[in-house]
């Protein structure tokens, strides 16, 4: 139970709830709130010293944000 573990758990649980029920119910707010559990998971991996997992997760999370942005743009363009 080191501090990174506790902090990561708090961010993961709180961020998941916050991105499930964002206050103004838009896709953009949902996506920004989704960054919080991503950093919580990163801190959780950090508490187990998994360097390769951290590098892979950092790259893939930025890629997934880009894909979500393209999806939101397509949805806004189509109405």
């Amino acid at each position: 139970m080191n501090p990174e573990f506790i902090l990561g758990l708090v961010l993961l649980l709180g961020g998941t709830i916050a991105s499930a029920f964002p206050v103004p119910r838009t896709y953009l707010n949902r996506l920004i709130n989704l960054e919080i559990p991503a950093w919580g998971l990163l801190l959780l991996m950090l508490s187990y010293n998994e360097a390769l997992a951290l590098l892979t997760f950092g790259g893939v999370s930025a890629l997934s944000v880009y894909i979500f942005i393209r999806v939101i743009q397509k949805k806004e363009a189509s109405g």
């Binding site: 902090l7 961010l11 961020g15 916050a18 206050v23 707010n29 920004i32 709130n33 919080i36 950093w39």
Partner: peptide
């Protein structure tokens, strides 16, 4: 970290 996460949830403007 905790303050930043809480502020991100509370604010309304992107």
């Amino acid at each position: 970290v905790l303050a930043g996460a809480l502020l991100t949830v509370v604010e309304r403007d992107p």
